[in-house]
Amino acid sequence: MKIKIIIASIVIVAAIIFGAISFVETNVEYTDFHTAATSHKKVQVKGAWVKDKESLFDAATSQFVFYMKDDFGREEKVVYDGAKPNNFEIANAVVVKGRYHDGYFHASEILTKCPSKYEADGETVKKTL
């Protein structure tokens, strides 16, 4: 009986350690462009699309390029592996996930935040009067 308990506890402890290591390894921190540029780790940065600067889909490399300003006002070029995401135009915030290198932020994922999809404001209601 005792041996069973010991084996079981070893398995559980090993699983917990394994889980904890995976958790720390894959945690993608929320940060700003400054930290992203210095750490070169995979991070998430929230910011706003700089609409008056050029944004384009480069068909040759299949990448979408745009400029984004983070919450601290730092502006960076973002290169995303893919097309312009759905809802990109109306997003009031953009979250890019990826690494900073060679002078731009290379995003593997983009999340668009569109509260307007769900929460209407006075302006929207006026349009439907």
């Binding site: 894959t26 945690n27 993608v28 921190e29 929320y30 995979k42 998430q44």
Partner: peptide, 9 residues
Amino acid sequence: HAAAVDTAY
């Protein structure tokens, strides 16, 4: 501060 795990986790 909040951080999500990557789907790789």
